[in-house]
Design a binder for these strands. Structure first.
Lengths: 187, 187
DNA sequence: CTTTTTTTCGTCAGTCACTGACTATATTGT
DNA sequence: ACAATATAGTCAGTGACTGACGAAAAAAAG
C-alpha cells in the first residue's frame, strides 16, 4: 500500500461510497471503511472531519469556482442574471461527475444524516454566492435572498437532470428558471 | 421529583438551553443536562432523539400550523400570496416565543452543529409548505420552488426581526417580500 | 380502597464516532 | 547518506446513543 496521501484519500472515498451502497450508512463503521481502503481508522479521520464528509469531498473547490464565476460575469447583469450566468458556467462540471454523482445521490436519498449534510453544503454555497454578489455591489441582505432563490433553482435543475439526463443539464436549468418566473405572472 | 413525563421534558429543555449558554454546546455533556434536570441520561434520550433535538421541541407543531394555514388561505390567492398569508398568520406565535427564541438564537449562532439542525428543520417546513401548496392545485415542482423562495423570505424576516424587534414582525415580513420583488424590477 | 395495567424512569452493559499524544515509516531536499 | 517533513500506525480515552430488563409511579379497573 503506497503511502502517497492523496491516493489513500481516494481509496477512502471509494470505500465509503461502496460500503454505504452495500450495507447502508448506519450499518457501516468507519473502521470497516478504513479496512477496505487498506488503512487505519485514524487515517480516515485525518483526511475527513467525520464519517459523512468522505462523500462530500471537492465541494469546497466547486464552491470557489461558482463564486469566481459570479465575479467574472458581465457587469451589466442583475443579481439573478449573474447567478444564472455562473450556474451555466459550472454545468460542465456537473456533467463531468455524473457517474460519481448518481450512486452518491441514491445513498443520500435514503440516509437522513447525509441529507442533513447536503443542506449545510448548500448553505455554504449560498453564503459564497451571496458574498460574491455583495462584491458586485448588491446590498447584503438582498444578495442573500437572491442567492437562496438562485440555489433553489439550481438544486431543482440538478435534481431533475439526475432523474432525466437525456435533455441535458442546460435545458433543465432553463426550465427551472422559467418555472420560477411563473410564480409572478407579470414578469 | 414528580414522574409526570411532560414536566421532566420541560426541565430537560430548560437545562439544555441553560447549559449550552453557560459552557457551550461541545463542552456540555448529555449526562450534565440530565443531572441538572434531576433525571438520568437515559431519560434524556427517551424524550429527545439526540443532544440537539432538545432545543428544537415544538417545531413539529409549528410546521403543522403553518401547513394548515396555507390550506385555509383564500382560494383565489396564487402560490406566493398563499404562503405570505400563512406566514402572516403565524407571526403571533413568533412574537409569543420571543423570550425563549432570543437566547436560543445566540447559542445556535455560535454552534455549527446546531445550525446544521436548523437547516433540516427549515427543510421540513419547506416540505410541509410544498405539500400544502400541492393540495391547493399547484404543480409539484413549482410548489417546491415557491416554498423554498417563501421560506427564504420568512427566514430573512425572522432574522431581521430578532435583531430589531422594535418595528414589529409584520413590518419585517413585508420588507423582506419587497426586497425579493426588487430582484425583478419589472414586477 | 385494592388490584391490575400502562407509562415513565433507573440501571447496566455495550457499540461506535471521534480525539489527543506519541511513535514509526516513507518521501523530499540537501 | 542524512536531515527534514509529511503521512500513517498505535494506544488509550471520552462521550453520544441504544437495547434489555427491572422498578416505581400513575392511571384504569374492580
Amino acid at each position: 500500500m503506497p503511502r502517497s496521501g492523496k491516493e489513500a484519500r481516494r481509496r477512502l472515498q471509494q470505500a465509503t461510497l461502496a460500503l454505504f451502497q452495500e450495507r447502508g450508512y448506519d450499518e457501516t463503521t468507519t473502521a470497516e471503511i478504513a479496512a477496505r481502503a487498506g488503512v487505519t481508522e485514524r487515517t480516515f479521520f485525518r483526511h475527513f472531519l467525520d464519517k459523512r464528509e468522505a462523500l462530500f469531498d471537492g465541494e469546497e473547490a466547486f464552491r470557489d469556482a461558482l463564486a469566481e464565476s459570479v465575479l467574472s460575469a458581465p457587469r451589466d447583469l442583475g443579481p439573478m442574471e449573474a447567478l444564472l450566468w455562473a450556474f451555466h458556467s459550472v454545468l460542465p462540471v456537473l456533467e463531468q461527475n455524473r457517474s460519481f454523482s448518481e450512486p452518491r445521490q441514491k445513498v443520500i436519498a435514503e440516509t437522513p444524516a447525509l441529507q442533513e449534510r447536503v443542506l449545510t453544503k448548500t448553505a455554504g454555497l449560498i453564503s459564497a454566492l451571496s458574498a460574491a454578489l455583495h462584491r458586485r455591489g448588491v446590498e447584503e441582505s438582498l444578495a442573500k435572498l437572491a442567492s437562496q432563490v438562485g440555489m433553489a433553482v439550481f438544486s431543482h435543475a440538478a435534481k431533475t437532470w439526475l432523474d432525466d439526463p437525456a435533455a441535458g443539464a442546460e435545458a433543465h436549468l432553463n426550465r427551472a428558471y422559467i418555472k420560477l418566473q411563473r410564480l409572478w405572472p407579470s414578469i
